[in-house]
Design a protein around this nucleic acid. Structure first.
Length: 450
DNA sequence: GATGGCCTAATTAGGACTTCCGGTGT
DNA sequence: CACACCGGAAGTCCTAATTAGGCCAT
């Protein structure tokens, strides 16, 4: 597979996009599960994502010209040579595992970042899967992990072609935060779930704690500080201009039945996630205050108006209301570097970045300077690698396999390094993979945590 | 012409909301 | 009175699996 990019506009894509994992599923088994060393091909692809665009659109209305200038320039072509594909895959996998410096993954790298197919040639159609931060949320409740890997009887496999088998059940929430898009060219797909959206907001300094905030982070309890604003954001994301809190609240109430959310009784606009990834990024009020003082990043005006009951106009209704005192969001070292990288690669443009997802220092699997290339979602997914292996994601085996693959690759690389240099290897691995970080844990939340 | 493989469009069905509503509680 | 909250019911949208039909090679 070859990806052609116009790098002039890549910065814009970086700002408003997320990583897409492409991989062939179902044709590998994880060693940890007693299978062979067959792996999916994983193609990390930078594609714009509607929900990120929606953030951008909140405050930064690009001019028509700029809109045209930044039209999609990503083209994907199928490579004729399977051999070449495998080589690229291996190279890209090495890139992912050796991201020691900011330049390791250049734009060129990024445009052709693959994960390896170490033992097998890909023979199945590639499925596009979006992996994002909350990849393990709810997965703890999924009871059929092992069944995903049990070998089907031969007769059953043979008969699946013609006989009408039970329909594939789409991934249900609560499930890992994975969006499966069969048609990879259908970029219009907009499948971020509401609970995922809320988690994203809770990790976004532009809206947390201004419009949504944690009231008891470790219990997963959050409050919709500005329910209207959050609803409008959700409506904007879903391209539902008429979205309001009543409607969104109905969706939230459906989450009660499905065990995704609980209502905190006696407190208005307060809900509780039933489970959270342990490495959830918690933005507190203090963070926001401090950060606003420090921030000087220009062009990050994609914020919604701040007054408690302000309206957030959707882009198709009117220009976003600007805050009288738009909160200056602080960019972490990650974000600052990202912005610098963007500026270095492209002409200045009104940036509508959503790069407020922060990483605690020294907790990233991939060091922070790589974030211009690797989305926060991917980072969190990577950080969940080991935990992921113990989860049971009934509906998303592929993604979890991929996560497991990454973890396995880290281990393999570490093992190889040990063989070559027993002294330096441990340190290198520590540096590359898990710098002082505990394995992320999924935390089932109970009322006792409150 | 028959058969089989491949491709594609159409169909079908399910999940996740969305919309509307009547009602209760604060 | 406004607002939050609840849950039923019906509808919409999106996606993935399946099916049917056309094309082509053997």
């Amino acid at each position: 597979m070859q990806i052609e990019l116009c790098f002039e506009d890549f910065s814009a894509m970086l700002q408003q996009s997320e990583l897409i994992f492409d991989f062939a599923s179902d044709h590998f088994a994880m060693p940890q599960l007693g299978g062979h060393s067959d792996y999916p091909a994983v193609i990390v692809e930078q594609v714009p994502h509607p929900h990120l665009f929606s953030y951008a659109g909140l405050a930064c209305e690009q001019s028509q010209e700029e809109e045209e200038d930044h039209q999609q320039l990503l083209r994907v072509e199928t490579c004729e040579s399977g051999e070449e594909e495998i080589m690229e895959t291996l190279v890209a996998a090495d890139s992912l595992l050796n991201m020691d410096c900011a330049d390791t993954l250049s734009m060129e790298h990024y445009s052709q970042t693959f994960l390896p197919s170490l033992g097998d040639v890909i023979t199945t159609p590639v499925t596009q899967v979006t992996v994002s931060a909350e990849g393990v949320v709810g997965a703890v409740d999924q009871p059929h992990w092992h069944s995903l890997h049990t070998k089907k009887p031969a007769a059953q496999l043979q008969s699946k072609k013609r006989s009408r088998k039970p329909r594939h059940r789409r991934a249900e929430s609560p499930t890992p935060d994975i969006t499966v898009k069969k048609d990879k060219y259908n970029k219009g797909g907009n499948t971020l779930y509401l609970w995922q959206f809320l988690m994203e907001l809770l990790q976004d300094r532009q809206v947390c704690p201004r419009y949504i905030k944690w009231t008891n982070p470790h219990a997963g309890i959050f409050k919709l500080v500005n329910s209207k604003a959050v609803a409008r954001l959700w409506g904007k994301h879903k391209n539902k201009p008429d979205m309001n809190y009543e409607t969104m609240g109905r969706a939230l109430r459906y989450y009660y039945q499905r065990g995704i959310l609980n209502k905190v009784e006696g407190q208005r606009l307060v809900y509780q996630f039933t489970s959270l990834p342990k490495d959830m990024i918690y933005i507190t009020d203090g963070d926001g205050i401090k950060d606003e003082e420090d921030d000087d990043i220009s062009g990050n005006d994609d914020v919604v108006s701040d007054d408690s009951d302000s309206e957030i106009s959707s882009s198709d209704q009117s220009v976003e209301e600007e805050d009288d005192h738009p909160p200056q969001k602080k960019m972490s070292s990650v974000s600052v570097r990202a912005a610098a990288s963007h500026r270095a690669r492209s002409a200045p443009r009104p940036t509508a970045q959503r790069d407020t997802v922060l990483r605690p220092a020294s907790t990233s699997l991939i060091q922070e300077q790589h974030l211009p290339i690797v989305s926060a979602e991917m980072l969190r997914t990577l950080q969940n690698l080991q935990k992921v292996q113990s989860l049971q994601p009934a509906g998303h085996a592929s993604v979890f396999k991929t996560a497991q693959l990454l973890g396995s690759l880290c281990e393999r690389q570490a093992a190889a390094e040990v063989a070559v240099d027993s002294e330096g290897a441990a340190e290198t691995h520590e540096k590359r993979s898990h710098p002082g970080q505990k394995t992320p844990q999924l935390v089932p939340l109970t009322s006792s945590d409150q």
